[in-house]
């Protein structure tokens, strides 16, 4: 009948310890570095968005042209406006991709996992798929 639950007194430390602050510091430092890395490397030259469904490229669209795109036969709608791309509608229940903010920087993406839709921003220089969009 002996059980393995803990003894009555709370053994674990209650107040924040020095190691806790070090941990918090490391987390914030890594987050800051990752943020700076993204800002400086991915920030320039965004020109178009690539729409992939199930890993297959469905189309590439210029961010400079305002347009509305139906993806995957209507499961998702992507709106390009003022140089940014935003998922405006999806038929999935969680709507995570719809709630996500618009993307405009190279490397940013909107992902709708239930429908396996990926929208990625590419820089215009190295996109070999420009012709597809025309």
């Amino acid at each position: 009948m002996k059980l393995n639950l803990k003894k009555p007194e709370l053994k674990q430390k209650v107040n924040l310890q020095k190691k806790d602050w070090i941990l918090i510091g490391i987390i914030l430092f890594v987050a800051g570095m990752a943020f700076l890395l993204h800002e400086f490397i991915g920030g320039k030259g965004a020109g178009c968005v690539t729409v992939k469904v199930d890993g297959e490229i469905q189309g590439v669209y210029r961010l400079s042209e305002d347009q509305e795109i139906e993806i995957n036969g209507g499961t998702n709608k992507l709106k390009i406006n003022n140089g940014t791309a935003d998922m405006t509608w999806a038929d999935c229940p969680d709507k995570l991709c719809v709630n996500q903010r618009a993307v405009s920087k190279s490397g940013e993406s909107i992902i709708c996992l239930p429908n396996r839709v990926i929208v990625t921003v590419d820089s215009s220089e190295n996109s070999e798929f420009d012709a597809v969009a025309q």
């Binding site: 674990q12 310890q17 190691k19 806790d20 941990l23 918090i24 987390i27």
Partner: peptide, 11 residues
């Protein structure tokens, strides 16, 4: 050891 409950939860 050396971490509080809050610290462990943060990790």
């Amino acid at each position: 050891g050396g971490f509080s409950i809050v610290g462990i939860s943060i990790a």
